[in-house]
Design a binder for these strands. Structure first.
Length: 298
DNA sequence: GATACGTGGTC
DNA sequence: TGACCAAGTAT
């Protein structure tokens, strides 16, 4: 089953959300920043952060000139702070190796820190209008339903997923807009929990025509958060973000007081990820931040 | 392929 | 209330 490009793009022309990174004049770097922030993160959480971020650091070289500590603080509680670290590393690489210009080639992009198959294609398509398949969870869900008649996408398979979407793409001039529309449809109409089929612009849908067969129950237990190493890492990072100067181990201990083994494991993993560093006096700080404070200054 | 990796909103 | 979900990447 195919998806008529005119139906989908026509719907998108009237229903497209007014997201700031889609505005005219937004640069490839600013689009790249939005894609990093949107990895596994709802639009509503990115909206308050992205405008300030791209105003403060409008280019790769401006971002590269900041410290990792500044970047991690600006990232705040967006989640997955390794993304912020990789965005910083990505900026450094583009400033150094690509003359401050975001590459437009999928394979080149994918070599950069923090850029995988989705983000590389999103930048190529949305920043450079390249006719490459852009496959995120929204697209996989829409294709699973409209094309394959299944309630949910199966396990990701890059080659198969790209081939599925490549077969749907219209002419090169409209491919990028078609991809954006496909993502938008999955994000606002053909959603995971409560698809709004009454508002769907697709004339035909294999899932609907098959009587909405249910999906299979997930095999893995639902992701939990409370009590995990992830939560412990988050608490430790909270302390470091909130302190302008390095903090002692005792100050970190307070942030995760019960399970000392877990706390040590979390701290070790943060150090290994380069999200925290230990300075010579034994205290801890965000990477690259000012080591001076009132007691250390002479 | 499975797993680790944040955080907060929603039903 | 707790399970599910959100524009993924790296190992």
């Amino acid at each position: 089953m195919r998806i008529p490009p005119d139906d989908l793009i026509g719907w998108f022309d009237s229903a497209e959300r007014d997201l700031p990174w889609r505005a005219p004049g937004i640069t490839p770097w600013q689009i790249l920043v939005s894609e990093f922030m949107l990895q596994q993160t709802p639009v509503s959480r990115v909206l308050p952060i992205w405008p300030d971020w791209v105003t403060r650091w409008p280019t790769p070289s401006a971002t590269a000139a900041a410290t990792a500590a500044d970047v991690l603080r600006a990232w705040g509680k967006l989640g997955y702070p390794r993304r912020a670290k990789r965005l910083h590393e990505c900026a450094i690489a583009i400033a150094r190796d690509f003359d401050d210009v975001v590459p437009d080639d999928v394979d080149v992009l994918q070599q950069l820190p923090g850029i995988g198959g989705y983000t590389a294609r999103a930048i190529a398509a949305f920043a450079y209008r390249k006719p490459v398949p852009v496959v995120d969870i929204n697209v996989r869900r829409v294709v699973a339903r409209a094309v394959h008649g299944r309630a949910d996408p199966g396990a990701p398979s890059a080659n198969r997923d790209h081939a599925d979407v490549a077969a749907l793409l219209p002419d090169a001039d409209r491919a990028a807009r078609f991809s954006a529309a496909l993502m938008e449809l999955g994000a606002v109409v053909c959603t995971a929990r409560a698809p709004n089929c009454a508002m769907c612009p697709l004339r035909s849908c294999a899932w609907r025509e098959g009587g909405f067969p249910p999906g299979t129950a997930p095999k893995r237990p639902a992701q939990r958060y409370a009590g995990t190493d992830r939560q412990a890492r988050g608490r430790l990072l909270d302390v470091l973000r909130d302190n302008e100067f390095p903090v002692s181990r005792a100050e970190l201990d307070v942030a995760w007081p019960v399970d000392t083994v877990q706390r040590d494991r979390a701290l070790a993993s943060l150090l290994a990820d380069g999200l925290v560093e230990q300075i010579t006096d034994g205290r801890f700080a965000l990477p690259g931040q000012d080591r001076n404070d009132s007691t250390a200054s002479r």
